[in-house]
């Protein structure tokens, strides 16, 4: 069985006008407000950063000047310390040298003192020998000769030691 054809009717079709809903209009206004707030906020942030940057720059310059000044002072102090160290080294070397000179003089004084004591012994021995000679009749010629030789040998060695000691001073 055949169905009857559909009857299309167009005459009662009336297109509905495209009207934005109220929600979308308010969103646009909000977006504009947000943009303005963002502009103002970022501008404020920029101003703040600019101000902070200036503060940091000024502080940095102050610190640099201070550090440079302290560095110069430290360098001067270090140079002064080096100069003082050099003077101390010189003074120490001088002290070492003087102490050594004094010690060497002490060594020589000890030697000269000993040699001097031996020279006195030599003189005493010669004086004693002269006394023997003055009483020659009491001694044998051989003993007198032997004593003279011993005294001469002793005195010769002492005089040689004296000459050496004097030569080394």
């Amino acid at each position: 069985m055949n169905e009857p054809p559909v009857e299309w009717r167009f005459d009662d079709y009336t297109p509905t006008p495209r009207i934005l809903p109220p929600r979308r209009a308010s969103w646009r206004r909000a977006r504009s407000a947000l943009a303005i707030v963002a502009i103002v906020g970022l501008a404020a942030l920029s101003a703040y950063l600019w101000s902070v940057n200036g503060t940091w720059v000024r502080q940095n310059e102050t610190l640099r000047e201070s550090a440079s000044s302290l560095g110069a002072q430290l360098a001067q102090a270090s140079a002064d310390a080096l100069a003082a160290q050099s003077e101390l080294d010189d003074a120490t070397a001088r002290i070492r040298s003087l102490v050594n000179d004094e010690a060497q003089a002490g060594d020589k004084a000890l030697v000269l003192t000993d040699v001097g004591a031996k020279l006195v012994e030599c003189a005493d021995a010669r004086a004693q020998h002269i006394r023997y000679l003055n009483s020659a009749s009491r001694y044998t010629a051989a003993s007198l000769t032997a004593n003279e030789a011993a005294v001469n040998e002793f005195c010769t060695s002492v005089i040689a030691a004296y000459v050496d000691a004097v030569a080394s001073t």
Binding site: A35, I36, A38, I39, L42, A43, L45, S46, A47, L49, W50, V52, N53, W56
Partner: peptide, 15 residues
Amino acid sequence: VACATSLMLAGCALP
């Protein structure tokens, strides 16, 4: 425009 302006201003003030 807001973003561009903000970036420009921020760029000028960057430390």
